[in-house]
């Protein structure tokens, strides 16, 4: 029975294997009502499998999951009325126009565009000038917006977005996340996955995933706070040589124009880079990507 007080999404000990490969390993987590929750991890981490289990498209081998209080196996019909889903692949009819796609999905979900227009108004207005254009002829960013409109048109309780920003350029990605922030204000629970670590900070809570397991789950701030060491950003005239030099002594990874070094003191670091020119060393706060790398290494 659905209970308003319980969490919007609950997974308990979910496992899913395809043949010999384990896609998701004994996974448990929950998402609160109205939360913007991010599954962060590379391809093959098991993100899409989780989405498919939660949207009742796949049956887990073991474990229990509920969405909005309904069991994903038993009550799949109830769940299908209540969730919006944007699969990883572009999933609209390329040969239908923007308008036709929207009307089709609205009717499919037993509603009309008119009835729920307020829900999608803000997003739809951006693509409205192209409403008679076939969906296949839209740019990547506009396709995402249309797909989002179609997923929202029935006012879902929970919105599942599987890698909505993959393959989309930086500008469109930014716009997309701004839209998600505004949707969140309407009270919809949003579960979103992404391989881009920089997008993690835009979620309220995140699960860092790798190979079917969760490395860490918390708010982005708490995860960054839990980073165990001091982190230094280093740069010099010859970055590649610098990387090779420091790597012999400490964990060192390229981050944009700097290298991020951890596990040694600032003095020791200064010693290792003696042979370099134009050296800059500064202490920096770790980002999600730093944390992810750290957790990944610890895991291995």
């Amino acid at each position: 029975m659905p209970q308003q007080s319980s969490d919007a999404v609950i997974l308990t000990n979910i496992t899913k294997t395809y043949g010999e490969t384990t896609a998701v390993k004994d996974l448990s987590f929950s998402v609160k009502h109205g939360e913007l929750f991010g599954l962060i991890g590379p391809d093959g981490a098991g993100k899409s499998t989780i989405f498919r289990i939660l949207t009742t498209l796949l049956l887990a081998d073991a474990g229990v999951a509920t969405v909005d209080g309904y069991d994903v196996v038993k009550d799949y019909r109830e769940i299908r009325k209540r969730v919006g889903y944007m699969p990883g692949k572009f999933s609209l009819y390329q040969d239908l126009t923007v308008e036709e796609n929207l009307h089709f999905f609205a009717t499919l979900f037993g509603t009309t565009v008119k009835e729920n227009y307020s829900m999608i108004k803000e997003i739809y207005e951006q693509i409205a000038p192209f409403k008679t254009r076939r969906a296949g002829k839209l740019s990547g960013g506009m396709k995402q917006k249309l797909a989002l409109c179609c997923a929202l048109i029935h006012r879902p309780e929970v919105l599942f977005l599987d890698e909505p920003t993959t393959g989309v350029d930086a500008v469109s990605r930014k716009e997309f996340w701004e839209m998600l922030q505004r949707l969140k204000q309407q009270g919809i629970t949003i579960v979103v996955s992404t391989p881009y670590m920089d997008e993690a900070d835009l979620c309220e809570r995140i699960a860092l995933m790798q190979s079917g397991s969760i490395l860490s789950i918390d708010t982005p701030a708490a995860i960054k706070h839990a980073y165990p060491d001091e982190l230094y950003a280093v740069k010099s005239a010859n970055m590649h040589q610098l990387l090779k030099d420091i790597r012999q002594y400490a964990s060192c990874y390229a981050f944009g124009e700097y290298l991020h070094v951890s596990g040694i003191s600032e003095n020791a670091l200064a010693g290792y880079v003696k042979g370099h020119t134009d050296v800059i060393i500064k202490k920096v706060a770790p980002g999600i990507e730093d944390c992810f790398i750290r957790l990944l290494l610890k895991h291995e």
């Binding site: 991890g41 590379p42 391809d43 391989p195 790398i293 990944l296």
Partner: peptide, 12 residues
């Protein structure tokens, strides 16, 4: 786009 969808360590 050689590194699309790859984890941060492998990317580096």
């Amino acid at each position: 786009e050689p590194t699309g969808g790859v984890d941060p360590v492998t990317r580096r």
